[in-house]
Structure formats: C-alpha cells, structure tokens
Design a protein around this nucleic acid. Structure first.
Ligand SMILES: [Zn+2]
Ligand SMILES: [Zn+2]
Ligand SMILES: [Zn+2]
Ligand SMILES: [Zn+2]
Lengths: 132, 132
DNA sequence: TCTTGACCCTGTAGCGACTACAGGGTGCAG
DNA sequence: CTGCACCCTGTAGTCGCTACAGGGTCAAGA
C-alpha cells in the first residue's frame, strides 16, 4: 500500500507527529481516511499540503494566514493580489521584529562592552537596568 | 501620603495595571502593603523595581532571567560574572532570532520581487510555497 | 445625602503555536 | 505469545500577558 502513517509523514516533512495532529484539529489539514485499526492513512496530496504549511510556517506566517493561502492556492485562474497582500503583511511584520531586535542587540552589546567585570555595584549592565 | 495606587504606578512606568498584578503573582514584585480599602499602596522602591523589570523586558529578558538579575542586583559587592553571562545569553538569543528573521525577510522579498501579479497558477509566491 | 463614575479587588479564561503527558489500542518480529 | 514501537484521544502545560465577570471603594458633584 502507498499510504503513509502519521510517523512516516512526520519523518518525510520534518513536522512532529503531535504538530500534524494539531494542524488537523486547527483545520489546516483534511482529516485523512483511517485504517481498520483507526490509524491515519495519508497519501501524496496530504504530504504536499503539509509541506506547503511547513514552508509557510518557516516564513513566519500565522495559521490564519496559512489557511487563507491554502484557500487562495486552490483558485488557479484567479488573480494573485490577495496572496501578494498576505506576503507583504508578513514581510512588514518580519521587518518590524527585526527592527525591535536590532535595537535590543545594540543595547546589549553596548552594555556588555562597558562592563569592567568587577562588582555588581559598579556593573554597567546592572546600572543601566536600574536606569543609571 | 506619598504612596501610589496601582494605576499611578502604571502611568508612571508605562506598565499596564494587569501586568503589574501579574508580575506580583509571578514573584517579580514584592506584595505591597494595602490601604484600609484593600488597595495596593506602592512606594518609591516598588517603582524602581518595576522600572528595572520593564527595562529588562524591553531587552527581551524572560521573567526567570529577570528574577535572577534582581537577585544579583542586590549583592552589591559580589562580582558581576553571572550578570554578564545572562546578558550574553540574551544577546545570543537575540542574534539567533535576527538571523532567522533575516532569512525570512530575504525569501519574502525575493518572492514578492518575482511575482508578476497575474493568476494564482503562475504566482511565484504560491509556487514557492508549494516547493516549485 | 445620594449618586455617579473612575478606580480598585480576586479569580478565571483566552491568546498562538505548539508540546507533553496519561491511559489506552494496534501490529509486527522473535 | 510477548515485547516493543507505534498509534489513538483527550487534557493540561508553556510564556507573557490580556480580557473579562462580578464585585468593592472612594471622591466629587447635584
Ligand atoms: Zn556606550
Ligand atoms: Zn558587569
Ligand atoms: Zn529570485
Ligand atoms: Zn503573485
């Protein structure tokens, strides 16, 4: 038989078993047919769909956005403006996070650069956390 | 009287009331004395401690790390090596996140740059999410 | 004096995206 | 036939808040 168990699918996609079941509960993956013993039996279509979800997650899309992307991907001859909009929103979100983290990094580096490694009372890190 | 209500403290530190109560439950802030009407009555020490917590949060430290920093900050004449280690760990974490997000940004930008705004079937964004 | 309204209290539930059990069932190899 | 890896469901925990629900307190204005 060419069907995959949930464990097979997990190994092939790199998505943990528990996460696959979670995606199914969240409506990202269709409920697969079951074997006699009530095991999930996946086929190639399921694997492609899960791979799509994984690539989207790797780009930071939230599950709601991924549901929307999956729906849009089904309408082959519709314009892709909505897809674009989702990607642009996600890019904006990523850029916002990078900006926040870059500010944190600068301050942490500066604190560490000023620390003379003596007592806590004189430590620049503690001093700045206290607000000088 | 020079005490502050929880709302006063929230306004002065920029930390929401609910979050202040949450920090108290989590053991980051000492339980303040109460008024006759059972209102929390804060003093300058509480405000300084909360400001320390806020600055630490703004740098991305987790609450466990902040608890440790607060403890270390009390031992004035001990060496600051542990403080340093916490800051270095936090810097490493921030740098890891920046690296992840930078990769996401590059891929999102590239996808968006290749999208010719036609149909979903030809859309580069959908194509890449599907794995080409 | 009464009442309005802003503030405060506790306790609990929800968010997002998992992750980790507990307590069982299935299926195959030795 | 027995062990073991795997699968099942359902629930609770993670992190750092945030949002109620259902009450109590308090000062100012009519
Ligand atoms: Zn400097
Ligand atoms: Zn130091
Ligand atoms: Zn390219
Ligand atoms: Zn497109």
């Amino acid at each position: 038989m060419s069907t995959l168990s949930i464990g097979d699918l997990a190994r092939r996609t790199g998505v943990p078993v528990e996460t696959i079941r979670y995606y199914e509960r969240m409506g990202l993956l269709p409920k697969p047919p079951r074997t006699e013993g009530n095991y999930r039996a996946y086929e190639a279509g399921h694997e492609r769909r899960l791979a799509f979800v994984k690539r989207s997650r790797d780009l930071g899309f939230g599950l709601d956005a991924i549901r929307a992307l999956l729906d849009l991907a089904d309408g082959a001859d519709r314009p892709c403006g909505e897809v674009d909009a989702l990607a642009r929103d996600q890019l904006a979100e990523v850029e916002r996070k990078i900006a926040d983290l870059t500010a944190m990094r600068a301050e942490l580096q500066d604190m560490l650069g000023h620390c003379r490694n003596d007592t806590v009372a004189d430590c620049e890190i503690i001093g700045r956390l206290r607000g000088k």
